[in-house]
Amino acid sequence: MRITADKLNKLAHTVADSLAGIPECDFLEDRNTIRQEARKILTKLLADEMKLDAGARLKIASQRKIIVEGSQEWDILYRKYYNDEVKKLGI
């Protein structure tokens, strides 16, 4: 899933603000550093998800038969191959 830089920044701000609102959560760094680290983590997670998606799509495209995206068969295969890719990572 593609997320714009603005939306990613907004999400990182929300994470930092949410953590700051938890009384049991004390920051060792300033809030901006926390926000930047949250942004890095979110960016990596989205990149990993894109790799999983690409792997599943590649497997579907490599089928002998042409499978139309959006069809029931495509959806079933996508879920199966996506889950296979996740299992490869040990998640």
Rank of each mutant, 00 (worst) to 15 (best):
I76S: 10
R35E: 05
M50F: 07
W74N: 08
I66G: 03
T33W: 05
K7W: 12
A12Y: 00
Y82A: 10
I3S: 03
K40N: 14
T43F: 01
I76M: 11
S18K: 11
Q72A: 13
E37A: 02
I34L: 02
R39D: 00
R39M: 04
L11Q: 05
G90N: 04
G90E: 08
R35Y: 01
A16I: 03
L28G: 10
G55A: 09
L11P: 00
I34V: 10
R39S: 01
R2K: 14
D6G: 14
D48A: 11
I60T: 06
M50K: 15
E29W: 15
L89I: 08
R31L: 02
V86G: 00
K10H: 13
L19Y: 01
R2A: 08
L45R: 14
R79Y: 04
I91E: 13
A5G: 05
I41H: 08
K7G: 06
A61V: 12
E85C: 08
A5M: 09
K44S: 13
S18M: 10
M1P: 03
L45V: 09
G70I: 04
E29R: 10
E49D: 12
L45K: 13
L58D: 12
M50E: 15
Y82E: 02
L58C: 11
T14N: 14
D30N: 15
I3C: 04
Q72C: 05
Y78G: 04
L77H: 02
Y81C: 06
R2F: 12
L46T: 12
